[in-house]
Design a protein around this nucleic acid. Structure first.
Lengths: 138, 138
DNA sequence: ATAATAGCCTACTATTTTTGTCAAGTATTA
DNA sequence: TAATACTTGACAAAAATAGTAGGCTATTAT
């Protein structure tokens, strides 16, 4: 159905919350949970992936929380979704980890490839900063 | 994961086969099944939807099969997928049949809307004729 | 030190969606 | 009238999604 998973959606919304604390006020999961209405346990999974991808850093203990690893203008929506949704492969045969046996014979192969690239390049141009500013006309 | 379902994929490939018979040589499900390696029973479901959407016509009995309802250059990939995958709503809250209660508060709402429109407009520019010609550079 | 805070990690499960199959039709033509 | 071909609706296995639960580790303030 060409749908984004909730993980991808929540992930972007969580990053928006973390960006509020940029550059040096850690934002707790609890706070994100409250503001974005997503359970703490589920957010843990999501933020863990984003941390491993080095999009955010964490600080433990009292006063701790999450911080952006880079400036909001250097974090694209594509980079967030790439961690949470996997590569922009519109069909499974385009997933690098799977491979396609009939690419040469398949009339649609290049079409889906082009579509995936279209989507990725669009989301690459949009950063957290753009998102905050509501600036994504093109 | 932002994946196209097999229905959408098979549907486009089936339309490609039916286009081979344009303008007046009906193509049977059996033939499509053989050439595209998809079961007859599954194709029945798919072609049924496309017929109801008036993208193809059917002729029963011996010598029958499916025919395009319009010229290949007048059938876009978007129109095919729209029937098989539903509207280009990247999130469920953007699905016209569901609706969104937090659109105003939601920072990401417009982003997903813009992305959906981006995808749809791209696939609207690509027709069956383009697909056959392998012509979808932009 | 130690208690409280806050993130870390793994396993598990219910639900939904996807991906089909199957069976019993109806319509058309040679 | 027999063979061909599409039509329709119900059903089911498998995969993906959307979470929950519970115990663990690290840090800070007192």
């Amino acid at each position: 159905m060409l749908r984004l998973s909730t993980k991808g959606q929540y992930g972007v919304r969580a990053m928006f919350e973390i960006a509020r604390g940029f550059p040096d006020s850690p934002v707790t999961i609890k706070e994100i949970s409250k503001r974005q209405d997503v359970s703490v346990a589920y957010l843990e999974q999501i933020l863990n992936k984003l941390r491993k991808a080095d999009l955010i850093m964490s600080r433990k203990g009292p006063g701790g929380g999450y911080l952006l690893s880079k400036r909001p203008e250097d974090i694209s929506i594509a980079s967030i979704l790439n961690e949470l949704e996997g590569p922009f492969a519109i069909t499974s045969c385009l997933d690098p980890s799977e491979g396609c046996v009939r690419a040469d014979r398949c009339i649609t192969h290049l079409l889906w490839k082009a579509l995936g690239e279209q989507i990725e390049s669009y989301l690459n141009t949009i950063t957290l900063k753009n998102l905050i500013a509501g600036d994504f006309s093109k």
